[in-house]
Design a protein around this nucleic acid. Structure first.
Lengths: 107, 107
DNA sequence: TTTTAATATTGCAATATTACGATATCAATG
DNA sequence: CATTGATATCGTAATATTGCAATATTAAAA
């Protein structure tokens, strides 16, 4: 049905999946990589750099913000989007915990 | 359009996003966690454990296999799905490299 | 060789995601 | 206050994903 049966899973499973899902689009990976290379980053740069429409980039930024990976500050007319380094580390740790605790001991 | 413009991105970006995407569903997270707890794992166990239909579980298993995270061996009438530990580590490393190299030096 | 049990595949229906044009908003500037 | 520039939001079209019933496949058991 295209509807994920969220209620069947634990909160941990849903959270993990949500992080993975947000990172699961090449445009969002590219946005993060680009922001990481710049000292200042405004959405308009991204539109030129990534090559998607402004509305589309804005939407992707919104999703990245939704899990706290980005924070944006208003700077005059434009926005300054930055990686939220603390959150970044927290999420990296959570994903690593998942990888480390999920180990095979199968046949 | 619901169509990701894959050709706009680097192979690295597409690969990374693909890994994240496959992990971005709670059922698939749950499947991996369950397999990791069991010594033997057949699809039928999962159907009972996860509570989705057999066809649905089978589909999720297929996606996990598509990025090499799972490998399945025929064992009589049933399948034994195992985590591919080598691949698992490789992917974990790739994701960590992404996290570590993508750092903020913003405003 | 028929039956049975386990898994895969097919074919939908429902919902979600992606992308973008058109607008709205909002702050600085004239 | 009107204009301009940057970003957000809305509406919508196209495509993707999720889930399942029905069916196919396949290997062991009868």
């Amino acid at each position: 049905m295209g509807v994920t049966k969220t209620q069947m899973f634990t909160e941990e499973q849903n959270d993990l999946a949500q992080f993975f899902k947000v990172l699961g689009h090449p445009a969002r990976v590219a946005i993060l990589q680009y922001i990481s290379k710049q000292n200042t980053c405004i959405c308009n740069d991204l539109v030129e750099e990534i090559g998607l429409a402004q509305a589309t980039i804005s939407q992707h930024l919104k999703e990245l913000k939704s899990i706290g990976l980005l924070k944006g500050e208003v700077e005059g007319k434009s926005m300054c989007y930055c990686i939220n380094v603390e959150r970044w580390s927290i999420i990296q740790n959570q994903l690593n915990t998942f990888f480390n605790t999920t180990k095979s001991n199968c046949c």
